[in-house]
Amino acid sequence: MSGDRPHARDVTVGVDGERSLGFGYVHLLNLSLVGGDWREVAGQVRRWSGWNWPQFLLVLGLDAVALFIAPDGDTGRLGWLYAVMAVALLLSFCRVAGVVGALAERAGKGMAYLPPTLSLGCVLLAFLAVVGMRYYADHGEVDVTGRARITAEEPLTDGGLLTVTVRNEPARDRVRLALVLADAVPGAQSCVPATTYDARLRGSGARRVEGVRSEEAFSLPLGGIRGDVHVEVVLHTDTGCRMGVRVADAALHD
């Protein structure tokens, strides 16, 4: 059939005169201009078999679900899951684009299992991404640094008290904190090296840490506390030192 039709490059279209109409195989010319050699395009489209699409759409859907349920916070921790999603999507698209089929054809009957195996692998990878995201959403570390609030006595001196409040949402078993201690009067004192603090959960004397230094992280078990978590801090510094405190890192984790 196609042999009867002239190739795009063979078509000569002459349209003379203002507003004259032209008929013929101009659509093929357009196709060639936009998509390159139309025969190549047509050949590729022929390889986009209908059976290649479901696996691609399934992987695409699973990746979308994984993205939707991905937790906020430390994206570095989730990096491997994003990589898995990308690989699954890329390989499944390779099948849609006919690359996998072409490879299998070229390799002969021995490789006939390649397209379905690859598709299965892609689906499993995308499923793994969904499960991984679900796990991190349920148990992964949640960065709450920006949501931690400090209420403190002014000025903050030796024996001074401050409270760090963090909301335990989504619920986790432990809270990790790191506080930065700074000289409130940096032009007249250098007290940070001699300053430490004790920290404990409000209402729980057992859950406490002592002698924590500036920027040192500590973790306290929450013991089922939901909602606001109050960590009470007592400062120890030299007499006369006036200190400032801010949260360097706050995270909920299991």
Partner: peptide, 8 residues
């Protein structure tokens, strides 16, 4: 009778 932080 002192005032301020230790001076190093």
């Amino acid at each position: 009778l002192t005032v301020g932080a230790p001076q190093h």
